[in-house]
Simulated assay, not measured.
Amino acid sequence: MVLNTRRVSNHTIVSTFLLWGFSSFPYLQVLLFVLVFFSHVSIVVANMSIMVAIKLSHSLHTPMYFFLCGLSFSETCITMVTIPRMLVDLLSVSKTISLPECAIQMFFFCALASNNCFVMAAMSYDRYTAIHNPLHYAIRMTPKICAQLLIASCMVGILVSVCIVNIVFNMSFCDSNIIQHFFCDISPVMSLACDFTPYHQMAIFMLSVFVLVGSFILIVISYVFIGFIIMKMSSIKGRYKAFSTCSSHLTVVSIHYGFAGFVYLKPKSSNSFREDMLMAVTYTVLTPLLNPIVYSLRNKEMQIALRKVLGNANRFISQTVDKRN
């Protein structure tokens, strides 16, 4: 393989990277391709089904499902940023990616991942508002306010991503061009920079803390208040109903922040990149697949809406086949 490089002083300046990914497991790459491919198809179908069900079911036109629709769309987009490239590399001999392509992939991944965190924070605020004052819920969570919260989450994600990409790709990459990952994640790319300093690492760490810890604190605050409200309820049935409205969101939050926090907030070393890569599979493949499953299994309204969507889809397919015959 010929590398796209140029010579500066005593260093070879790299302009093309090699996504090493799962190259250490050559005999498993076909099996991995099959597993990841079907997982990707399942993610797209599951999240699209959630979005279509919410769009077509009038009973789901509420703030909670509006945010869920936004989260499903964001999860679908984030898998499109990483998984198709992984699938190509699993069957390809050449696993190269240019520096601009790497920067674009990192930008969209960081923007969408940050957006997910703040959408989950908005969802927790929505649950607090619904439980704290259900009579004024429709007034406090109007479609306009919900749209503003979703747009704010997106804008924060974009700004954070711009900062991260600016820091990482303003550094010079020299000598080694092998990224120990299946996509252009922050730490594996930064480790290749020849002018990488602790100040760069601290800046990225603080941005990660702002996104993960900042949004998580907002979620915790909402649930602390929700907990106080539930404890004051005299009816056991009322407590159960209030908790059940939050259980799906709590499950998704636990999965998301557990994996993401492990990768982005723990100390980095060159020996941890393979471990981080395996963990990255969970939050780029497993988490987007689990989110719609959790919400559909634990929510009767969503189950009814999905059955209607699937029933309409089956009838449409049957009618199409009958017309052709």
Score class of each variant (00 low, 15 high):
residue 252 V to T: 14
residue 253 V to L: 09
residue 322 D to N: 11
residue 249 H to G: 06
residue 261 G to M: 03
residue 227 G to Y: 12
residue 291 N to T: 14
residue 279 M to L: 14
residue 321 V to K: 02
residue 287 T to F: 14
residue 303 Q to C: 06
residue 234 S to F: 01
residue 289 L to D: 05
residue 308 K to E: 14
residue 303 Q to K: 07
residue 295 Y to C: 00
residue 286 L to T: 05
residue 277 M to Y: 03
residue 281 V to Y: 04
residue 283 Y to C: 00
residue 287 T to V: 12
residue 233 M to P: 00
residue 310 L to R: 13
residue 304 I to V: 14
residue 227 G to R: 04
residue 232 K to N: 13
residue 322 D to E: 08
residue 281 V to S: 08
residue 276 D to W: 07
residue 257 Y to P: 10
residue 263 V to L: 12
residue 233 M to Y: 11
residue 252 V to N: 14
residue 263 V to R: 05
residue 265 L to H: 04
residue 286 L to M: 15
residue 289 L to P: 05
residue 294 V to D: 01
residue 273 F to A: 10
residue 277 M to N: 05
residue 224 V to E: 08
residue 256 H to S: 04
residue 294 V to E: 01
residue 232 K to D: 15
residue 232 K to Y: 03
residue 301 E to L: 04
residue 240 Y to D: 07
residue 240 Y to C: 11
residue 280 A to M: 07
residue 320 T to K: 13
residue 251 T to V: 07
residue 305 A to R: 01
residue 323 K to F: 14
residue 230 I to K: 07
residue 260 A to K: 14
residue 254 S to Q: 09
residue 264 Y to S: 06
residue 295 Y to K: 01
residue 250 L to A: 15
residue 295 Y to L: 03
residue 228 F to Y: 09
residue 287 T to N: 08
residue 249 H to V: 11
residue 265 L to Y: 03
residue 232 K to C: 05
residue 272 S to P: 03
residue 312 N to E: 13
residue 279 M to R: 05
residue 228 F to M: 13
residue 310 L to D: 04
residue 295 Y to A: 00
residue 294 V to H: 02
residue 307 R to F: 09
residue 276 D to L: 09
residue 264 Y to K: 09
residue 262 F to I: 08
residue 243 F to I: 12
residue 301 E to P: 04
residue 232 K to E: 12
residue 302 M to N: 09
residue 311 G to Y: 15
residue 262 F to N: 05
residue 238 G to M: 06
residue 287 T to W: 07
residue 265 L to E: 01
residue 320 T to Y: 13
residue 324 R to E: 10
residue 284 T to F: 09
residue 297 L to R: 10
residue 257 Y to K: 03
residue 295 Y to V: 00
residue 283 Y to K: 01
residue 274 R to D: 12
residue 252 V to S: 15
residue 251 T to L: 03
residue 227 G to N: 15
residue 252 V to G: 12
residue 243 F to W: 08
residue 293 I to R: 00
residue 278 L to R: 10
residue 256 H to D: 09
residue 270 S to K: 04
residue 252 V to C: 15
residue 320 T to A: 10
residue 297 L to D: 04
residue 291 N to R: 08
residue 253 V to R: 00
residue 289 L to C: 15
residue 251 T to K: 00
residue 271 N to C: 07
residue 264 Y to W: 14
residue 290 L to N: 00
residue 285 V to Q: 02
residue 298 R to F: 10
residue 309 V to K: 02
residue 253 V to P: 00
residue 272 S to Y: 07
residue 255 I to G: 02
residue 285 V to I: 15
residue 271 N to H: 10
residue 315 R to H: 14
residue 324 R to P: 02
residue 240 Y to I: 08
residue 312 N to A: 11
residue 251 T to I: 13
residue 250 L to K: 07
residue 283 Y to V: 00
residue 254 S to I: 04
residue 227 G to D: 08
residue 282 T to F: 15
residue 293 I to C: 01
residue 304 I to R: 15
residue 250 L to T: 06
residue 317 I to Y: 03
residue 231 M to I: 12
residue 312 N to P: 01
residue 235 S to M: 04
residue 264 Y to P: 05
residue 234 S to D: 07
